[in-house]
Amino acid sequence: MTAEKHIAAGQVEEWVLVDEQDVDLYVRQAANSVLRIVLVNFHSATNVLHIDHTASNCRTEVYALAFLKGKEHVETKTCMHHDVGEGVSEQVVKFVLDDEAKGAFVGELKIKKDAQRVEAQQTNRNILLSRTATMRTQPQLEIYADDVKASHGATTGQLDESALFYMRQRGISPESGRRMLLHAFMSDIVEKVSDEHQRQVLVDAIDGVLE
């Protein structure tokens, strides 16, 4: 899916993109517009999301999840450009990688010199389920305005062993415990999908991969 989109002033959009092979979006947001993108991948793909705030009071939310097995690989790049002040952006990007899967996240966040009072947040959380899975993460923050709130954080780790033991001590099998922890890890992305039917389709798809 390759597209250039313009979101008109005051417009509210939510795009749910599940297992698209390649996403290359260039989006320009006008004043007071809201864009939410939920991007989910279970197979190899390259994603580029380029979003410009061209006027004030824009809001952008990017929630991305890749859950990969085998030799699947996903690279997701976001280019979040605050060209004008008073905008808000929130990005939560998660990868769950098993077997020899590979993930990459490049998060470019630019706040121009006069784009004051921007609130920009970028979070990248990754779980590696095998020793041979790999994750590369690369935040690129370029902030030229001085009156902004910008934060980013990236962590890559394994499933919480102490939580798994706690569950086993209550009689829960390691398989069920893993499944519950992974569901919990992915649920905050899934919950962002407003449409109940679409959300259920996504939950079922995740269940399918978890089996």
Partner: peptide
């Protein structure tokens, strides 16, 4: 294994109970 011991009736009240974000008490 630990889960079988639990099902056989061994219960540990942990000194430091573990927090499990995103897993509801009822589901757990």
């Amino acid at each position: 294994p630990a889960e079988v011991r639990a099902r056989e009736g061994v219960f540990l009240s942990f000194q430091y109970p573990v927090e499990i974000p995103g897993v509801s008490m009822v589901n757990f």
